[in-house]
Amino acid sequence: MTIKTDLKGLTRRQLLSRGAAAGAGFVIGTNFVSGQDAAWATEMNALKPDTMATLIQMARDIYPHDKVADEFYAAAVKGYDVPDAVDDTEAGIEMLNGVARGKGYGSYLDIGWERDRVDILRSIEDSAFFQKIRGGLVTGLYNQKAVWPIFGYEGESYSQGGYINRGFDDITWIG
C-alpha cells in the first residue's frame, strides 16, 4: 500500500482540514483516504477516494475482524486502484450505493450498523462484483504477513530450526 509520508503523521485536525470525515471512520480527501487517527493513508492513483473508502468498508463487512485495523483492509483492496480495474470497480460500488439508496440511505458508507450493510451485501452476493471482491480478499487480506501475528499465526519456522526445541508439544491443558 502506498502510504504518503506527507499525509502519514498528520494530526486528525490537520487531516480533516484536507478532507471530510466520512462513514465509519475514514477521512476522504481530494486524492486520498486515511484513517481518522491518521495512522494510515492511501493516495489514489485511479479510483475516486469515495470509492476506495466504500471498498474498504465493504471489505471489512465481508470479513469482519474487530482485531484487524482498517489499514490491512485498505491494503487488501488497494490492487483495484489501477487503471485496468477502475471501470468495473466504480460501477460495482455505484451498484452497491444504488442498493443503499433504494433502502433510503444516502450511500453505503452512511449506514451505521454492520447488520444493515450486510443485508445489502447478501442481496448482491451472487453478483460478479461481490464475488470478485470477496475472492480477492481471501488472499488479499489473509496472506498479508503483517496480519498473521494478529491471529497468532507464526508463519515459517525453518529459519529458526523448526519447533523441535521451541514448543511443538508445549500444550499445557491436556489432562
Binding site: 515459517e156 519456522s157 525453518y158 530450526g161 523448526g162 519447533y163 523441535i164 511443538f168
Partner: peptide, 12 residues
C-alpha cells in the same frame, strides 16, 4: 525438526 509446512516440500 517439527517445522510444519510438510505440504510445501520438506526443507530438511
Amino acid at each position: 525438526q517439527q517445522t510444519g509446512f510438510c505440504f510445501q516440500g520438506c526443507k530438511w
